[in-house]
């Protein structure tokens, strides 16, 4: 399980804005292996979302080199290498939950019968059986976000990219979804890139934590988690967990030392 899926070398990205150029990423080097759960954590403006968007070919680097499954991000998108989950569920209000999950399948041209089959499977995967015929507004925020995860899983990409997917939800719902996400990860063996603001969330979920710091966005620390893959919620009270969280906090503080 040490096959690299995403490799970034000397990645630079500079946005041209009206206030002059803004360096969003500088000299980012990172390897993500198959089956990893990698969290990106850091303050606003540290480039964590930008890096995720570069992987997804939603932004294009101005320097350096990145491969996804050995291809350029654009080619990887064409070969349906990843599913992307945004901060908001972004379900279409005029489609049912099943209709929303079918959206990528319709665009990618899956046959009708297979669409139904896949919708059924992913709804089961996110514990939303029986909600296919409901409209988004009939579901709670947490259920909507689960539906959007199901939508990203529907076409069975190997990589799941998640941009603060639980950021808008309350802590209790978030805990629950984190547990479910770990279970889903264990079952599907996917590689997950996960952007978050929350130290406990990053430590609880990840096998690898990438601590980033802002202006310009760069990697401050990469922590390989010593925690086992099997993680009950109580693991958050163990000394190992607290030690990792401490190191993340140190990394974040170091990134801020100059201001």
């Amino acid at each position: 399980m040490t096959e690299p899926v995403i490799t970034a070398e000397k990645l630079d990205l500079t946005f041209q804005t009206n206030d002059g150029p803004v360096q969003a990423l500088r000299d980012v080097n990172l390897t993500i292996n198959k089956g990893d759960f990698v969290s990106f954590i850091g303050p606003s403006g540290c480039g964590k979302t930008t890096f995720l968007r570069v992987i997804a070919a939603l932004e294009h680097p101005t320097g350096g080199h990145i491969t996804v499954n050995g291809m350029t991000p654009d080619e990887a998108r064409q070969s349906r290498a990843y599913g992307y989950v945004f901060q908001a569920a972004g379900l279409y209000p005029w489609r049912t939950i099943a209709g929303n999950i079918k959206l990528p399948l319709e665009i990618m041209g899956f046959p009708k019968a297979e669409q139904e089959e896949r919708v059924k499977n992913v709804l089961q995967l996110v514990d939303l059986e029986g909600f296919g015929k409901k409209y988004p507004w009939q579901l709670s925020g947490g259920m909507q976000q689960r539906a959007s995860i199901a939508r990203a899983l529907a076409f069975d990409a190997d990589i799941l990219l998640m941009d603060e997917p639980f950021g808008a939800l309350d802590e209790i719902v978030r805990d629950h979804l984190n547990e479910q996400l770990l279970a889903l990860w264990a079952r599907t063996q996917k590689t997950i890139g996960f952007v978050t603001h929350s130290i406990p969330e990053a430590v609880y979920l990840s096998t690898k934590i990438v601590v980033m710091s802002p202006r310009p966005g760069r990697i401050a620390d990469v922590i390989e988690s010593p925690l086992p893959r099997e993680r009950p919620l109580e693991i958050r009270d163990t000394p190992e967990f607290i030690a990792v969280a401490h190191r993340v906090r140190e990394g974040l503080r170091a990134g801020h030392s100059y201001d």
Partner: peptide, 9 residues
């Protein structure tokens, strides 16, 4: 929402 469709190509 536009980005989402972009990720589907």
């Amino acid at each position: 929402q536009l980005d989402l469709l972009k990720t589907y190509g």
